[in-house]
Computed example of a mutant assay.
Amino acid sequence: MASLDLLSSGFDAVRQGQYRANTAAAEIARAGAPVGPAAAGAIPLQPATGQPAASTRVDSNRPVNLTNSLVELQQASRDVEAGAAIIDTADEVLGTLIDIRA
C-alpha cells in the first residue's frame, strides 16, 4: 500500500535526521573536550548528570570544524521536519482512504 511506503519513508527521514544530529552534537561536544591520552575515544558526559551525552565515541585526533558541525545540525533539523511532514501527509491520506471506504 502506498501510504505505508510513505510512512516508512517519513520514519527513515526522521531516523536519518536523528543520526545526523547525534553525530554533529558529538563533534560539537568534542570541540570543548580536553585533549589528552585519557580523552582519546572517550564519550563526553553531561555536566549536570554525569551521564553520557552521546552514544558516538569521540575521536580526539581529528580537528573539529564547528561551522560544518553546526550546518550538519541544522540539516538534521530539516531532515526531521521533512520526515514529520511526510508522516503527517501519509496520516491524512490514510485517514481519507478510511473515510472513503467506511
Score class of each variant (00 low, 15 high):
residue 2 A to V: 04
residue 3 S to A: 06
residue 5 D to Q: 13
residue 5 D to A: 12
residue 6 L to N: 12
residue 9 S to R: 13
residue 9 S to Y: 02
residue 10 G to H: 08
residue 11 F to M: 09
residue 11 F to H: 11
residue 13 A to K: 05
residue 13 A to Q: 11
residue 14 V to G: 01
residue 15 R to L: 09
residue 15 R to W: 13
residue 16 Q to I: 13
residue 17 G to Y: 10
residue 17 G to V: 15
residue 19 Y to S: 02
residue 19 Y to K: 14
residue 24 A to N: 07
residue 24 A to S: 15
residue 24 A to L: 11
residue 27 E to G: 00
residue 28 I to F: 00
residue 31 A to R: 10
residue 31 A to S: 07
residue 31 A to C: 10
residue 32 G to E: 09
residue 33 A to D: 06
residue 33 A to R: 09
residue 33 A to F: 07
residue 34 P to E: 00
residue 35 V to A: 06
residue 35 V to G: 01
residue 36 G to M: 02
residue 37 P to D: 11
residue 37 P to E: 14
residue 39 A to Y: 08
residue 40 A to K: 00
residue 40 A to Y: 05
residue 41 G to Q: 03
residue 41 G to I: 00
residue 42 A to E: 08
residue 42 A to C: 06
residue 43 I to Q: 00
residue 43 I to L: 02
residue 43 I to V: 03
residue 43 I to N: 02
residue 44 P to N: 12
residue 45 L to C: 02
residue 46 Q to S: 09
residue 46 Q to E: 15
residue 47 P to Q: 12
residue 48 A to R: 05
residue 49 T to H: 04
residue 49 T to R: 06
residue 50 G to R: 08
residue 50 G to F: 13
residue 51 Q to C: 11
residue 52 P to W: 12
residue 53 A to E: 08
residue 56 T to E: 11
residue 57 R to P: 01
residue 58 V to Y: 01
residue 58 V to C: 03
residue 59 D to F: 04
residue 59 D to Y: 03
residue 62 R to K: 12
residue 62 R to E: 11
residue 62 R to N: 00
residue 63 P to H: 04
residue 65 N to Q: 09
residue 65 N to Y: 10
residue 66 L to M: 03
residue 67 T to K: 00
residue 68 N to Y: 10
residue 68 N to Q: 08
residue 70 L to I: 08
residue 70 L to Y: 10
residue 70 L to C: 05
residue 72 E to I: 09
residue 75 Q to E: 10
residue 76 A to Q: 08
residue 77 S to N: 04
residue 78 R to C: 08
residue 78 R to V: 13
residue 78 R to L: 03
residue 80 V to G: 01
residue 80 V to F: 01
residue 82 A to D: 11
residue 82 A to Q: 06
residue 82 A to C: 06
residue 83 G to Y: 00
residue 83 G to C: 06
residue 83 G to E: 10
residue 85 A to V: 14
residue 85 A to N: 10
residue 85 A to L: 09
residue 86 I to M: 15
residue 87 I to W: 00
residue 87 I to E: 02
residue 88 D to F: 04
residue 88 D to N: 12
residue 88 D to S: 15
residue 88 D to V: 14
residue 90 A to I: 15
residue 93 V to T: 09
residue 93 V to N: 03
residue 93 V to I: 10
residue 94 L to F: 02
residue 94 L to R: 11
residue 94 L to T: 05
residue 95 G to S: 14
residue 97 L to I: 04
residue 97 L to K: 07
residue 97 L to N: 06
residue 100 I to K: 07
residue 100 I to Y: 02
residue 102 A to C: 03
